[in-house]
């Protein structure tokens, strides 16, 4: 925090009105062309060198710790590998089996797609609303924030499985609450038609991480912008749409992308609630849960690796598309 004065001093040179305008009015290249050519070259090289110096740890980690295991798993996806003996090359067999001879695989795809389609939008909306609520000035704010965040702090702690049954079991809290209104319902975790609903609820229960990212973004929006908009006669909803949302788009983008990736890879909730089985009757057989069953319980790591790379391909395609859409709706502070 000792550097704060320096930052403050610099921020004062920023024209406040420019912060609010989000139109792309000054491409950087235009500004750069004003400089002499040789200096551009020099500063460009200097910048590249500086960049790679900053990137040294990450590049090392990438090559030594991340890429090796990733590529090895790609290789394994073309083999039959039971962990205990050496892998045996089988070509595309794992990939073809997946789509032609494995109903449980297709089931896991269906379960995961339903889960992603429902949980991601809900999670984003709920966490944005709560972030807005907790960004206001009111008493006990710190306490409220901590309390709303509490479930997310628990992680996948072993206690959650027990707690979850308590809430959604046949004799659980939810049913006791429903009974007050005269509604009778069986177990929510034990019924194949409802089990996925309870896992989506579990996801929403731990909305805290997404909310914190939104909240941190909201804190960063200069108050002056809201005040300026208020002066111009904008109401709360208008201010939200024309000031808050545009400034939040980088984080909305981030949370949507990461939320989707995480939802596709979702494992812990189903693992904890179903005891690793994906039950009842495969109704919570998430993609990675099935992958884990194949890889570790059934000792079919080649097949599991193939599943992982199919997922990677799907997510990569989705991310590429999503990044492409970003140019139309995401506004960065460095684009001005």
């Amino acid at each position: 925090m000792s550097d704060a004065p320096a930052a403050k001093e610099l921020t004062e040179t920023v024209r406040p009105e420019s912060l609010g305008t989000i139109t792309d009015d000054g491409p950087r290249s235009a500004r750069q062309t004003r400089r002499p050519k040789s200096r551009i070259m020099k500063s460009k090289t200097r910048e590249a060198i500086a960049a790679y110096v900053f990137l040294i740890p990450w590049i090392l980690g990438m090559i030594l710790l991340t890429l090796g295991p990733m590529l090895y798993s790609l290789y394994l996806s073309f083999t039959q590998y039971d962990l205990l003996s050496d892998p045996r090359w089988v070509g595309l067999q794992n990939y073809t089996r997946m789509f032609t001879a494995d109903p449980r695989y297709l089931k896991s795809v269906a379960v995961t797609l339903v889960y992603v389609a429902i949980s991601v939008p809900l999670l984003l909306i709920v966490s944005m609303l709560l972030a807005l609520l907790l960004n206001r000035n009111m008493k006990f704010l710190t306490g409220y924030r901590a309390l709303f965040y509490l479930p997310s702090l628990m992680g996948a702690s072993v206690a959650i499985a027990a707690l979850w049954r308590l809430v959604f079991g046949a004799q659980g809290l939810v049913n006791q609450a429903l009974a007050i209104f005269g509604i009778e319902h069986g177990s929510w975790v034990g019924n194949p038609d409802d089990a996925l609903t309870t896992i989506i609820t579990l996801t929403l229960w731990v909305f805290g991480s997404t909310m914190i990212i939104f909240l941190a973004g909201l804190r960063q929006i200069p108050k002056e912008l809201h005040e300026a908009a208020t002066m111009d006669g904008a109401g709360a909803i208008r201010r939200f749409i024309s000031v808050t949302i545009p400034l939040m788009t980088p984080l909305i983008f981030f949370n949507t992308l990461m939320g989707t990736i995480h939802a596709f890879q979702s494992f812990t909730g189903a693992y904890v609630v179903s005891g690793g089985t994906g039950g009842p009757a495969d109704s919570t057989l998430f993609y990675t849960l099935y992958l884990y069953q194949r890889g570790f319980a059934q000792l079919d790591m080649g097949y599991a690796s193939a599943m992982a790379w199919v997922l990677l391909a799907v997510l990569a395609a989705f991310s590429a598309f999503f990044f492409w859409t970003a140019r139309f709706w995401v506004h960065y502070g460095d684009e001005r």
Binding site: M62, P69, M258, Q265, F267, L291, Y292, M301, A308, A316
Partner: peptide, 11 residues
């Protein structure tokens, strides 16, 4: 970004 897309179970 690609490193985030592979489920950790296989690495």
């Amino acid at each position: 970004l690609g490193t985030m897309l592979l489920p950790s179970q296989v690495t």
